[in-house]
Design a protein around this nucleic acid. Structure first.
Lengths: 191, 191
DNA sequence: CCACTAAAGCAAAGGAATTGCTTTTGCCCG
DNA sequence: CGGGCAAAAGCAATTCCTTTGCTTTAGTGG
């Protein structure tokens, strides 16, 4: 879990949390991250700055929390009938969402204000979950599948690495190529 | 290139740059990053804070510059006689250096204060360079080799992804497994 | 050797971050 | 249903980081 304290789920804490998160999202959308400050967020959210400092520590940890929330997938991956098609389309969509300017900013924020690594871990868990659904479906169909860990190595890791370290030259074709490698790994002995 | 301006080599600028970088490294070693501030670095380096703000912008970009410098490999990878051995030992060493507490901190810093992505790109280039040396050597020996890009996907990306997003359960055996996958990719058609 | 320019020093002003104390509010127990 | 307890928010003062205009120093080229 994050540094964020347990929030009493219906009380004032929850309302404050909600309004602060909303304020961050709105301000990010309106003006981007340039010049975003805690006092500014506090004012928009109708709270005092010290409340934010006490609950989140600093702007980066607050942004990290908002980012993780925003990176959570909203729907399970669509079923396209075969593992190949499912992996391809998931990889393409993942790349699409994550490599956008907004997506990259959220990833950076999630990593950035994350002292104990729990937010980053959460992001990774989201991706693994989605892949797990796809692989389980294929398994039910009787298709050979790679393990989730292998799929993460072959698809998620290269995409994320390139998004973070070499944002150029990424396209859907590359994502599809990665999906096929993961597929090829399904037939090998589990190395 | 970074936001860091071209420094006249040999002049006062170079001396300031040197003393500031040294101050950062010393303070990081002594007290870690907790409570590290620009004025503190400036004092240790014997310059005024405004000098640092004017040249680097803020603490994060300064740390990013120092981190990239520190992540530069100092020696070409050792020749162990075969591609398999070279890849294995390089992957192990890479994991070792990067997954340490200090290594992780440097990676995070490098990514963090990097508005245009040039510092992250530099880190990636370092790894690609090292791999390129290993692969070229194998090529000369007549061994089949994967392309550098493929080796990056199979070795560097998974290691980096896990270091950043899931720091648990990383060990030398995993690094070796990745090296073997890259090796296996050498015989496939270049997908 | 002198002029020109880039970078560093200096100092003041503005604003973010921190913190002790008070007040509110939600929750639990009698 | 009412009183007390504890957690979190508000408030305000203080600290010090950050910014910025101006001056001074130092390196470069004519």
């Amino acid at each position: 879990m994050s540094r964020r304290p347990m929030v009493r789920p219906g009380g004032r804490s929850a309302r404050v949390q909600e309004s602060v998160h909303t304020a961050v999202r709105e301000l990010l959308a309106e003006q981007g991250r340039e010049g975003l400050t805690v006092p500014q967020v506090a004012h928009r959210a109708g709270v005092t700055p010290s409340t934010i400092y006490r609950r989140w520590g600093d702007l980066e940890q607050l942004l990290s929390d908002v980012a993780v929330e925003r990176l959570r997938p909203e729907t399970p991956p669509e079923d396209r009938g075969s593992l190949a098609a499912d992996l391809e389309s998931w990889a393409e969509q993942f790349l699409d969402e994550m490599s956008s300017t907004a997506g990259r900013a959220y990833i950076r924020d999630a990593l950035l204000g994350d002292p104990d690594g729990s937010n980053a871990g959460q992001c990774s868990a989201y991706a693994a979950e989605q892949l797990d659904v796809v692989l389980a479906r294929a398994s039910v169909r009787g298709e050979p599948t790679p393990g989730v860990e292998r799929a993460v190595d072959e698809i998620v890791a290269p995409l994320m690495y390139r998004i973070l370290f070499r944002p150029d030259g990424l396209d859907a074709a590359y994502a599809r190529r990665l999906a096929h490698r993961a597929l090829a790994a399904a037939e090998e002995p589990p190395a």
